[in-house]
Design a protein around this nucleic acid. Structure first.
Length: 307
DNA sequence: AAGACGAAAGTGGTTGA
DNA sequence: TCAACAACTTTCGTCTT
């Protein structure tokens, strides 16, 4: 992925000294610390054209693949009546043979449906993973899990897109890759609600264990998007670690905690950002930052921001 | 004028009877 | 299945810089 022409140069400082942090799904500039988030890459010139074209095509006629889906009028059926094309009865001695044909036809169709379903899913998976700039291992793990889910008939009545997104989310969580449900939802056409529902269902059905997501994972991404220095990120991580020890964080959303810690750290090191700025990047509101900030201040003797 | 603060009411999802 | 509940959001008035 990093071999791609468009991604060779840091958009901020022009450096070519980039590394791909597989485990976090991010590309980081070694010189200025800039993190290529999926959003930044999405709006890049080459990608946008590609994306828009694809979107348009889909909007106009549905994806090219949809015609391959079952029940679009392309499936042939052999009906249950033992009549030939003119409507006259078929001789009994041929009926058994017909029955056999019917059976194989049905089996072939089922196998095809399964394969087609899988093909659609894998295509969608591929698209999602590259849109979100996730490492290859995620795609492979997700494909594996999808296959299992499909075999267990867990997809019934759910949009393939939602299930794929749900599984990607699940794999990210397990790999501690800081992507929120919101991030994933933005890269698909399914709603957050749908994906969440599919996620919970799949998680339960496959009895997958998912660790609680850690605020620490979000720090470097937010810090980069806010143009904050590496020092601030480190400071924020310290704050979170300290808070963890005192057990202040339970039950709170990880993004809110990360945002508040960054807010404090930035102010402390003279790179102050407004609550609004931080809130926007973290996808939460100012109120939540204030609440977390207040809690952190009470529990760990943190000085006031204004000085 | 913009940022920070917090109260109050609303939202969507989880949990437990 | 429904009501209580926690976390978070929206909205708004007030105070501070």
């Amino acid at each position: 992925m990093i071999e791609d022409e468009n991604l060779r140069v840091c958009p901020k400082c022009g450096s070519k000294n980039l590394i791909w942090k597989q485990d976090e799904g991010e590309i980081v500039c070694q010189d200025c610390g800039y993190v290529f988030s999926s959003e930044i890459i999405d709006t890049g010139p080459e990608w946008r054209a590609f994306d828009a074209e694809q979107k348009e095509r889909r909007a106009r006629g549905g994806s090219p693949l949809s015609i391959l889906k079952p029940n679009k009028g392309l499936v042939t059926e052999i009906d249950q009546y033992n009549k030939d094309a003119r409507g006259s009865k078929i001789p009994v001695k041929y009926q058994q043979e017909l029955q056999r044909t019917r059976k194989w036809h049905r089996r072939a169709n089922i196998a095809n449906a399964f394969e087609k379903n899988l093909a659609t899913a894998l295509e969608e998976l591929d698209r999602l993973v590259s849109n979100l700039n996730l490492p290859r291992s995620v795609a492979e793990e997700a494909a594996h899990k999808y296959r299992i889910a499909a075999k267990k008939q867990l997809i019934r009545g759910r949009l393939i897109e939602s299930v794929v997104a749900a599984i990607v989310y699940l794999v990210c969580r397990q790999a501690n890759i800081p992507k929120t449900l919101d991030d994933i939802a933005k890269a698909t056409r399914s709603s957050k609600k749908d994906i969440g529902r599919a996620y919970r269902f799949i998680k339960r059905a496959l009895s997958e264990k998912v660790p609680l997501s850690d605020p620490l994972n979000y720090i470097s991404r937010y810090a980069s998007q806010l143009n904050l220095s590496e020092k601030v990120a480190e400071e924020a991580k310290k704050i979170i670690l300290e808070a963890k020890e005192k057990g202040v964080l339970s039950g709170r959303g990880p993004t809110g905690i990360a945002a508040a810690a960054l807010y404090i750290a930035a102010a402390r090191l003279g790179e102050k950002k407004t609550q609004k700025e931080v809130a926007e990047i973290a996808g939460i509101t100012e109120v939540t930052i204030r609440n977390r900030y207040r809690e952190l201040k009470e529990q760990l003797n943190i000085e006031d921001i204004s000085d």
